[in-house]
Design a protein around this nucleic acid. Structure first.
Length: 525
RNA sequence: GGCGGGGUAGCUCAGCUGGUAGAGCAGUGGAAUCAUAAUCCAUGGGUCGCAGGUUCGAGUCCUGCCCUCGCUACCA
């Protein structure tokens, strides 16, 4: 019997920016989720991609002296490279400039326009939009938001200059969908918007007055034309959000992909773009008559050594730099272990090294190394055979066998990646305590059969740990499983439990440390 | 200003529906020596932000105050 399908998305990243730790973080969380679900027997669609339209992109391209399409090809490529660098397992990489997406967007618009709001009015109507507009920010601002410069002129909150602009615009009847949105969110704890504090924020926002949304522009052309009115292009958010249904096959609703994967199980987003995903997007979908995503999760942001990250401060964290310095799986581990997922976190060298040395090298890596070394030296490099199991043996094995359930809940239900890792490490520590308590090095002389049992039990515990840690650290865990003699087809979650145990006498390769300690440069302060 | 959160051991934080405070890290003292000088055991008397209140009894409920964070619409 096939388990249910799972569709998880990252936001599509705006090509006006270059990849940084924030992008890496969002995608990493999705990657771990996607890998976990695959190992757990689900068929998965894991989507990421790039958002390539909008005035800012048009201007950046012009400034670079490139046609927009060439410009976005270049920058989009950098995000593809990020996926490779970070070892993401995305099944698709969508670009909003692709034909499939343009077709999808225009069809979605037509559907929204063809339908009426719950109040029986057209969802889309033509009107005039006027406001203080900042080209640099690509945003309209309300009078109250503006700040005054030295000469009493108006500036955007960002300090960018603004100008009064009026243009014809199509509007979306967002206000009419208010109650339907509230119904969608449900009570706190419904899991539609997570974490719960974000759910509350979204609900309180929607409970207030909802204004209709301007969803087209005429002042520039780098975008998707509005069906039936080429003078307009679609508002970038409507364009961007639609990627999620595009990749699911829309508008081919009879396609296998669409039937399997839509609606999405989870849109993972940074907290800064929660509203677009939790308010506008479901409203657009309802208006188009499509099913709604099951969940939106907003995670937090990173600081660097306690400082807010900004280009002007020059402290942007580039994924390639930290991967080179600390190692890929080490970075993947750290990002999801250091901070309760959903909260803001701080990236510091000290914390990074602490996690690498204390938890990866000393706790987990050394556990595998000490056990595998003893097997290598004392069991002729073959998986030992267990004799009768003691209470201590059973206690450790029970903990290992029970681990998957707890980890599954933390990852797939709560998205508490830090807790999932914590659960795994509880058993890592337990296994170290078990080895210390059983003293297989002493049993070597007094009771070799018992020694073999202890090493077998320890190896079996490590097998469970490595299998469950795979979504977080795929390469390192693969190495560990290689050393444990676990065949390539014996590494998914159906192989957890006693039935999946490595056959006694299986030949094992010489063990090598999987997680090296991080040694600071002498020059480091 | 309005609405949500938070303020607990040096650090990061747990503490369902109230009953004399916990984990990890760091520190200290032991043990062990299989292993990446890794591991294991023991050790945490902290006004649980402040002041009141309810209660036999309150980090755990109520009131007020202080501090702090987030949201308060069309920037990805």
């Amino acid at each position: 019997m096939r388990k249910s399908a799972y569709y998880v998305t990252t936001p599509i990243y705006y090509v006006n920016d270059s990849p940084h730790i924030g992008h890496a973080y969002t995608s990493l969380a999705c990657d771990v989720l996607a890998r976990f679900q695959r190992l757990d027997g689900h068929s998965v669609l894991f989507l990421t991609g790039t958002d390539e339209h909008g005035q800012k992109v048009e201007k950046s391209a012009a400034a670079a002296g490139w046609p927009p399409k060439e410009f976005v090809d270049e920058v989009s490529g950098r995000f593809r490279q990020l996926s490779e660098l970070m070892n993401y397992s995305n099944d698709d990489f969508i670009r909003t400039t692709e034909a499939r997406h343009i077709r999808s967007c225009q069809e979605l618009w037509r559907r929204i326009a063809a339908n009426q709001s719950p109040q029986g009015r057209d969802n889309i109507y033509l009107d005039t939009y006027g406001g203080w507009y900042s080209v640099r920010d690509e945003a309209f601002y309300g009078e109250a938001e503006l700040i005054k410069d030295a000469d009493g002129g108006r500036l955007a909150p960002s300090g960018a200059p603004v100008e009064w602009v009026e243009e014809p615009s199509y509007f979306f009847r967002l206000g009419d969908w208010r109650q339907r949105l509230l119904d969608y969110y449900g009570a706190p704890g419904s899991g539609t918007v997570m974490p719960e504090s974000r759910h509350n924020e979204v609900v309180s926002f929607v409970e207030g007055e909802l204004f209709d949304l301007s969803i087209s522009r005429t002042s520039f052309s780098w975008g998707i034309p509005v069906p039936g009115d080429d003078a307009h292009i679609m508002y970038v958010w409507l364009d961007a959000l639609t990627n999620y249904v595009t990749a699911a096959g829309f508008p081919d609703e009879e396609s296998e992909t669409y039937k399997t994967f839509w609606p999405a199980d989870l849109h993972m987003v940074g907290k800064d773009i929660l509203r677009f995903h939790a308010v506008y997007w479901p409203a657009f979908l309802m208006a188009a008559g499509l099913a709604l995503p099951k969940r939106v999760f907003a995670h937090g942001w990173w600081t660097n050594e306690g400082e807010k990250i900004s280009k002007s401060l020059g402290n942007v964290i580039e994924p390639a730099d930290i991967v080179e310095r600390y190692g890929l799986d080490q970075v993947r581990y750290f990002l999801l272990r250091e901070v309760p997922f959903g909260n803001d976190g701080d990236f510091s060298h000290r914390a990074m090294v602490g996690r690498i040395n204390s938890e990866l090298a000393n706790d987990f890596g050394n556990l595998a190394q000490r056990v595998l070394s003893m097997i290598n030296k004392n069991c002729a490099a073959r998986m030992p055979q267990a004799a009768e199991l003691s209470e201590a043996d059973k206690e450790l094995l029970d903990a290992a066998h029970g681990l998957s359930g707890r980890v599954r809940g933390e990852i797939t239900e709560n998205h508490a990646f830090h807790e999932a890792l914590n659960e795994i490490w509880v058993v890592v520590r337990m296994a170290n305590g078990y080895v210390a308590g059983q003293e297989p090095w002493a049993l070597k002389k007094t009771d070799p059969e018992r020694m073999a049992t202890v090493l077998y039990v320890a190896a079996e515990a490590i097998r469970h740990l490595a299998i469950l840690a795979q979504p977080f650290m795929p390469e390192s865990c693969a190495k560990m499983l290689d050393q444990l003699g676990v065949p390539a087809d014996g590494r998914d979650f159906s192989c957890l439990g006693p039935e999946g145990a490595v056959k006694p006498a299986t030949e094992l390769p010489p063990p090598e440390p999987v997680f090296p300690r991080f040694v600071d440069d002498a020059a480091e302060d």
